[in-house]
Nucleic acid binder design. Structure first.
Lengths: 193, 193
DNA sequence: AAACTTGTGGAACACTCGTTCAGGTAGTTG
DNA sequence: CAACTACCTGAACGAGTGTTCCACAAGTTT
């Protein structure tokens, strides 16, 4: 045989545990922020020995980077699903409302990635991923309007996180509508593409 | 005399040192982020003994909170100056361009405050301060358009922080113009009020 | 000048952290 | 079943942390 298709059971388990550690790290970030991520806290969360994270990731930074890259990947999938599903103002407003309420922890984690990327250039690409993907998917007729729209979504999210009560779908809908008022071609382009 | 106008020289020096510690803390945050704030790093930066920050602030959290409240205050002054000085699209674009380039550290610090506020309710008011102030100062005719505008400014700032090269004034100006296209009354109201 | 208050700072404690390392264990191969 | 290999982990080390404590200095009041 050209290449052994027989997988080493040891390596398979290793990969599984590796992913479990990354998932546990994301849970820790959602709960306590990046500040709460230590080898020990991650190990506790994942139910693995203290030294396991060190074994799988050379350094704590590597673990953080792996987690945030994976998180960005997941978020892009969500984003694409929303865009692909039509992307009306109502649906976008609902997504934002969910992001700052039910998925609050996750959204906070995402913005911690933003800030971390601000200080670590190697993370910039991951942090910007959903933006690049949005531009790619939509190919807007009016780039200026689209950039304004994307900026406003970011702003609504982050401002929603520090509101006394999280803004609801109904409160957000008119704002999103305003931003999209003569840009309905966004969604048409997304559907067509 | 009803009340001793004579100030205690000891307390005066104390207050001075207290403020020096807060300022040093802000410099540390701008350079290394909130993660880099420790009693010792702040003491080094301020040129005071290790135990000075503990003496003036019961806990590290108190120091952080004091620093961020003060920082928010300063930022509000800046904001008001921009609004009061006319607030054309060009000027706003220039402010944003500066915030993500020359004042990059400061802007990063400001968004770390946002995120911290997301996890600590007692900081929410401070984080939202410039927003509330903007609404108060402008009293927009179209609240929806104005909220969209404020959200977009936040988004442009945070996205500017994670761009490979920080966006310049010329790149931002059309976006700001777009957001203001039928809201010139913002600035008129600000000037008038 | 004596008594008193307030600010000051070096030493030290208990703790948590990231990381190392040698030994052990599970899976594979002959 | 024995030899081998790759994965795994408990114990431990050194570094850095927040905070406490107490002796001391500086300033104020009587």
């Amino acid at each position: 045989m050209i290449d052994g298709p027989k997988v080493d059971g040891r390596k398979a388990r290793g990969e599984k545990k590796r992913r479990a550690i990354v998932e546990a790290t994301l849970r820790v970030i959602e709960r306590d922020g990046i500040a709460g991520v230590t080898h020990r806290s991650v190990a506790r969360e994942a139910g693995v020995p203290t030294t396991a994270p060190t074994y799988y990731f050379a350094t704590l930074d590597d673990l953080l980077i792996a987690t945030l890259l994976w998180s960005a990947e997941e978020l892009c999938d969500d984003m694409l699903r929303i865009v692909a599903s039509g992307g009306s103002a109502r649906e976008i407003a609902r997504s934002i409302a969910r992001a700052v309420d039910e998925n609050r922890g996750r959204t906070l984690a995402e913005y911690e990635l933003y800030l971390l990327a601000g200080r670590r250039p190697e993370l910039k690409a991951a942090a910007r991923r959903w933006l690049d993907l949005a531009v790619e998917a939509v190919r807007p007729a009016d780039p200026v309007a689209f950039r304004a729209f994307l900026a406003a979504v970011d702003g609504l999210l982050i401002q929603g996180l520090i509101a006394d009560v999280a803004p609801g779908e109904d409160e957000l809908e008119p704002i999103v509508s305003f931003l999209l008022r003569d840009c309905d071609d966004f969604t048409a382009a997304a559907r067509g593409g």
